[in-house]
Design a protein around this nucleic acid. Structure first.
Lengths: 224, 224
DNA sequence: CCATGTGAACAAATTCACAGCA
DNA sequence: TGCTGTGAATTTGTTCACATGG
């Protein structure tokens, strides 16, 4: 076991995958599972599961496997999912409103507590159970609601300014869906996701496939 | 330069990032850019840009840099974005309808040509400019519309069956947003994206930060 | 026995440093 | 001179094989 700091993004994403799998196993009433069985059911790698888990402690029972409930609990704790995280969504367009409703349907450890937009037509309307507030009030909204994580779902041209507004308002982390490269301070974890890129990845693979692909293999695991 | 097959997912994603950056530079009227300038403006690594690009040909001019327009064109070609890709969206819930409208607003090389759902209440209604068709008609819908890529935005419990339905209907690639691990044939590129995982990554970093983080550093680049 | 946990071998990706060309 | 393109060095990540312990 190593110290739990500096975990790479890929490892972290695998831990989320393991947790997702374990929750399904729990629903199915499974009590224990071996790394091999877990790997087979969810198309993962057994040695990698063991390596990943062993990094954070000895969670398994030799000769048996892992206790499903206990391991799920450990992973929840590790990932910081054992408490509620409050989110503020900035930009209530297509993606922003989808995100609000999505998380209201299945909150898990994440709860959207505020929604803001700078469009006069939207302010005061509802998205899910929330009333949309003016972007100009962001700092007050964050302070009142106790929002900790900002979700940035605004057009590219507005992203930089709104990102800074989120930082100024005092959020501790940001998930950005705008297609821009944000310069972020070390103190505020910021993850950028560009949905278009996933489509482009598939487009490349279709192109490579079409171009014969004689000899060279395209090996791109589906990523979870 | 190596053959253009078997490119890793991360490399591919960086190419998309470069293309996105180049398009912005084009709009700003820039004619050429060096790897160093590109890296500085978009928080990337200059040697990595050169490595990535050199893998596919000699696109640059020594002593000068890269021609913005030409390089953008090359990358578009490489990624298979020089032709239109037709999409069918399966599951018109929050995320599905957001996706349809998002791509109608900014189509790029991707055009949504069909939307299906199995909810009687939704069938016949519109999402963007499309009329929602019954899931049962998927094969016919794909055949009529010429859809090439399936977008899976259904609840987890329906994902496996609907994924198979997409394969049976003859799509060539699938982008899956349902939180399940799909078993996919080598012949059909399939990319799974779980938005919740990004939130969990941030939750972990907040937890690690809170736990002192004395000594160990959390280094997780924001990923684009 | 059986499956975990792990050091050692291997593979992949990134960074470096500089040769080579405009 | 300045920046690309690239082999070599380094770092990071994955797989293997087996010693360890329930």
């Amino acid at each position: 076991m190593a110290d739990p700091h500096d975990v790479s993004s890929v490892t972290l994403n695998r831990l989320s995958l393991y947790l997702r799998a374990l929750r399904q196993l729990q629903l199915q009433g499974e009590r224990t599972i071996s790394s091999l069985a877990l790997a087979e059911r969810y198309h993962l790698s057994a040695p990698q599961i063991r390596k990943d888990l062993a990094r954070f402690g000895e969670f398994g029972i030799r000769g048996v496997g892992y206790d499903v409930g206990e391991l799920a609990g450990r992973l929840r704790g590790l990932l910081g999912l054992d408490r509620e995280h409050r989110l503020v969504v900035v930009g209530i367009g297509n993606l922003g409103s989808a995100f609000v409703r999505f998380l209201e349907d299945e909150p898990g450890s994440f709860r959207v507590v505020a929604a803001v937009d700078n469009d006069r037509a939207k302010i005061g309307r509802r998205v899910g159970s929330l009333v949309i507030r003016p972007l100009a009030d962001l700092a007050a909204v964050v302070a009142e609601s106790g929002a900790e994580i900002g979700i940035l779902t605004v057009p590219a041209r507005a992203a930089d300014a709104n990102y800074r507004a989120l930082l100024d308002a005092g959020v501790s982390a940001v998930l950005n869906f705008a297609p821009v490269a944000l310069a972020h301070p070390d103190s505020v974890p910021t993850k950028s996701v560009d949905l278009r890129i996933y489509l482009e990845e598939l487009a490349f693979q279709l192109a490579a496939q079409h171009l014969g692909a004689a000899g060279g293999e395209r090996r791109l695991p589906d990523g979870g």
